[in-house]
């Protein structure tokens, strides 16, 4: 079970002199339970790709399939597919309209005819998955702190019970503790079988959380694969605007000193590699 984009090409203002090719033959797949990060510089096409996954944009050419079925734009299947794919925009709280957090979260399922106890259960579950305390359900969304608002907006997507969660810079503008909290929430959803497609330029989160990373450069896939493969590639061929996290730069330095260490190691992995190197040299 996966969401799969194959050979997506997308041209903004197609057929006009202002035509711009935003995506040029991108393929990407995310299985349920997987965390796939899409990284790249501003203007690399990350957000355009995210909007294809939720069928907000129709590719100029190429296909999107969900759970094995190709989804033609405008079809009945496309509408159903959109329920399976939840998209959280950057600054999602700018789209709040309801007076309470509860109404905000209940909006989509109640539109689908869910009501009564089933709706309450659905709201409670979404709120708890997003890390929102039940006491906040009665609050006005605009009275919440930045981190809580973001959680409320995410809960209102989770209430649709999506199988695939597409997040476009979900932690933008949050402080350090807000970023950590949300990242843990996404990892938890992932371990429960949801696919997380995370659009970001935070390489530290991408390196430490992802099963796979896709690097976009001006609408083309520069490299994709495990964090280790991507770190190896980027250390040979840096991509403008992507800064490797300190642990990777430190690991690169260690390799130059002859210490064997995977580039995508966490801090604990780096220490292990150093201890091994020390015991080998001590002998």
């Amino acid at each position: 079970m996966s969401i799969k984009a194959v050979n997506i090409k997308y041209i903004y203002n197609e057929g006009t002199p202002a035509a711009v090719t935003a995506l040029d033959g991108i393929s990407l797949e995310a299985e349920r339970g997987e965390w796939v990060s899409v990284v790249g510089h501003t203007g690399s096409g990350k957000s355009t790709l995210a909007q294809h996954l939720n069928l907000l944009l129709t590719p100029s050419s190429g296909t999107v399939s969900i759970d094995g079925a190709r989804v033609a734009p405008g079809s009945r299947e496309a509408r159903d597919a959109r329920r399976k794919v939840g998209l959280v925009f950057q600054y999602p709280e700018s789209q709040f309209f309801a007076e309470t957090v509860r109404e905000e979260i209940a909006f989509a399922p109640s539109n689908w005819g869910v009501g009564g106890a089933a709706l309450d259960a659905c709201v409670a579950e979404a709120a708890s998955s997003a890390g929102l305390s039940p006491s906040m359900l009665g609050s006005n969304p605009f009275s919440l702190s930045g981190g809580e608002r973001r959680r409320a907006a995410i809960a209102s997507v989770l209430s649709m019970k999506p199988d695939y969660l597409v997040l476009d810079e979900p932690t933008a503008g949050l402080d350090a503790s807000g970023v950590r909290g949300l990242t843990a929430t996404f990892k938890d959803l992932c371990s429960k079988g949801m696919a997380v497609i995370h659009v970001t330029h935070d390489m530290e989160i991408a390196m430490s959380m992802s099963d796979r990373i896709a690097v976009l450069e001006r609408g083309v896939l520069a490299v994709s694969g495990t964090p280790e493969r991507v770190a190896e590639y980027l250390s040979e061929r840096p991509v403008k605007g992507l800064v490797m996290p300190p642990s990777v730069r430190f690991a690169q330095g260690l390799r130059e000193k002859g210490v064997r260490v995977p580039l995508a190691s966490r801090v604990s992995g780096i220490i292990e590699a150093l201890e091994e190197a020390r015991s080998r040299r001590g002998r």
Binding site: A176, P246, F250, V267, I270, I271, L274, E275
Partner: peptide, 20 residues
Amino acid sequence: FGFDIPQELELLRSLRDGGF
């Protein structure tokens, strides 16, 4: 003070505790 603990600092602490 609510500043993020940078990864550099995490590295420093682990390296120092390990005597590196």
